[in-house]
Amino acid sequence: MSVIIFTEIDNGALKKSSLEAVYYGVEVAKMKGSTATVLAIGEASEAELAKAGSFGATKVLHANDARLATGNIQAYSDVLASAVAQEGSEVVILAKSSLGDAVAARLAGKLKASIVSNVTELPDLSGGFKVTRSIYTGKAFATVEMKSDKKIIAIKKNAVSVVESGASASVESFSPALKDSDFAVKVTGTHKASSSISLPEADLVVSAGRGLKGPENWGIVEDLANALGAATACSKPVSDLDWRPHHEHVGQTGIKVSPNLYIAAGISGAIQHLAGVNSSKVIVVINKDPEAPFFKAADYGIVGDVFDILPRLTKAVKAL
C-alpha cells in the first residue's frame, strides 16, 4: 500500500514543487498507515537529496545514470515503473509540470492506473479514494473517485501547507535496467532563460500587460520582481507581440500559476487571463482604468499610472 513520490532535479537541487509533492505523499502514506519512498532522477549530491527528509521522507531512491541527465520522458517513466515495482507502491504522487505530466501519463499507460491532475487538496479516504481537482482552467473544482488499484496524482502548487521538520532522509542508489528504445528521442539543444526564478515554481509573481506600452519599458517590472525575489510574467497580447518570451505568458492558453502573490500591472483582466491566475492566494491589480475588469478578481487595487506606481513599490520593498 506504499506511496512513491516522483521528484525532479533542477541544477543539482530538488525542485521546490517536488518537495511539496514529497510532503503531500508522506501525508497520504500516513493516512493509509503506510510508508512513502521518494524517487529522484538525475545529478544531485547525497546531502541535497537528504533534504527530502525535512519534508517527511525517510528513503530516497536516486537514479543517476549518465543517460538520464536530460529529462527523457520514456526513460524516466521506465525508471519510475521499476521503482513502483520494487517498492510495491499503489499510489504515485508528483508535482504538475511539463516533464511530470508526461512521465506520469506514460506510467499510467504501463500500470493501467487512474490518473488525476491539478489536484488541490489531500485525498479523502473516508469512503473510497477521492481527490479534488481544479477544472475549466481554475473556474471550477471536481471531486473524483479513483477506482483502479494503482493511482497517480499530479498536484497543483499550494495543494498542501508544508511544515518542515529539519530531518534528513537516507539516500539509496537505484539502477534499474534501461532499454535502448527509451533513448529514441534526442534532445539536441536546450535554451533556458538566465533568470533564476522559474514561473510555475514561484511564490511571488510580477506580471505586466500592454499597459507597459513596449518591451523597452520592462525594466520597471523586472526591478520590482528582483526586489521581491519574484518571477516575471506577462499577458497573452504581450507574448503575441513578442515583447516577452512565450514561457512567460500566463492565462488560459499559457502557463497556469497559483503563487502566494500575483501582481498585475497594466493588465485589464480578460476572462482568459484570469483563468490562468485565479487560484493565486492574493492578487494585486494596478491599472489606470478604474473600470478594468481585473479589479473584480483582485484583493488589493491601485488605480494609477504603472510608470509612477511600480518604481515607488520597488523603493518601498527595498526599504523593508
Binding site: 493501467k112 492506473a113 487512474s114 490518473i115 488525476v116 477521492k130 477544472i135 481554475g138 473556474k139 471550477a140 473544482f141 471536481a142 471531486t143 473524483v144 473517485e145 479513483m146 477506482k147 483502479s148 485565479n278 487560484s279 491589480v285 479589479f295 473584480k296 478578481a297 483582485a298 484583493d299 488589493y300 487595487g301 491601485i302 488605480v303 494609477g304 499610472d305 509612477d308 506606481i309
Partner: peptide, 23 residues
Amino acid sequence: EDLTVTEKFTLPAPKGACKMIAA
C-alpha cells in the same frame, strides 16, 4: 471503462471586495 468517476462539481468561493489603495 472509466477508471475515475466524478462525484460532484463545485465553484470557487466568491472573492471578497477588492481593497482599494489611493495612488
